[in-house]
Design a protein around this nucleic acid. Structure first.
Lengths: 126, 126
DNA sequence: CTAAAGCTTGACGTTGACGTGAGAGTCAAA
DNA sequence: TTTGACTCTCACGTCAACGTCAAGCTTTAG
């Protein structure tokens, strides 16, 4: 498929997909015309990329680990010492990050709940 | 206290603290000399700011909700309709974000575990 | 009183993941 | 073959949360 279809099927803009290729996260075929030709499997790949990017990993790390991830968390290739060092660090960072998010989520929860019980009886001008 | 001490006690750089003030997150007193004078309570405030920033909230939203948060998730002021709208949205975004992080965390876990069992028997050159 | 250490306000630089045209070539249906 | 939608490669713009000088005042220990 061309870039437009992959874009529609993943929700990632064409510019974003070209950026992913530039960063080595995607390696589409090329027609004689220069048009990129993506495989069906790239839809899943892009989804995985999105998950990891949203988690705060950068494209360099994703490029390294991407060959090791398949659908649904299954694994393909064995990993290397040096790389798992980075991964381990990232995992720890992620763990802390999740904790922070949970704390912030709890903060929002309390505030919102108080707001609900408070707006019933107090006028507000902000 | 002056900005340097607050910096040491929070781990946030002076530049960061000035930025927080510029964004309306802190309102230190000023000496005649122009020196900022922070209150002890600002240490806790900065910690709360860090939690929320790490959670991905921007300074604008934090400025709005900060008056409503006290120590340990306790609440001070009542909230406003319009604001809780934003907060609700942010809470939902946070919820999704946490899910993404968990997914990414699981990915890293699988990869790392395979790496551990695999590196024992396979040479690696990356 | 002095000198080091600390603080002030600008103001420009950085980073990552894209957004946003510009100008030109390509595809596919009619 | 036309035409309109799609794609290509530059290449500069963006945004948030600071980093990093620079030039000049302030504080405070000795």
């Amino acid at each position: 498929m061309f870039i437009g279809e992959l874009s529609r099927r993943t929700g990632v803009s064409p510019r974003g997909l070209r950026y992913y290729e530039e960063q080595g996260l995607l390696q589409p075929e090329r027609r004689a015309s220069g048009y990129r030709e993506f495989a069906d499997s790239d839809v899943a790949t892009v989804r995985r990329i999105r998950v990891l990017l949203t988690a705060g990993l950068n494209t360099e790390l994703i490029r390294e680990m991407l060959p090791c991830v398949a659908d649904e968390g299954a694994i393909l290739a064995p990993t290397c010492e040096e790389m798992t060092e980075d991964l381990r660090r990232e995992r720890e960072r992620l763990g802390r990050s999740i904790e922070q998010l949970r704390a912030a989520h709890a903060m929002l929860d309390s505030i919102i709940h108080v707001g609900e019980s408070a707006t019933a009886r107090s006028g507000c001008d902000a």
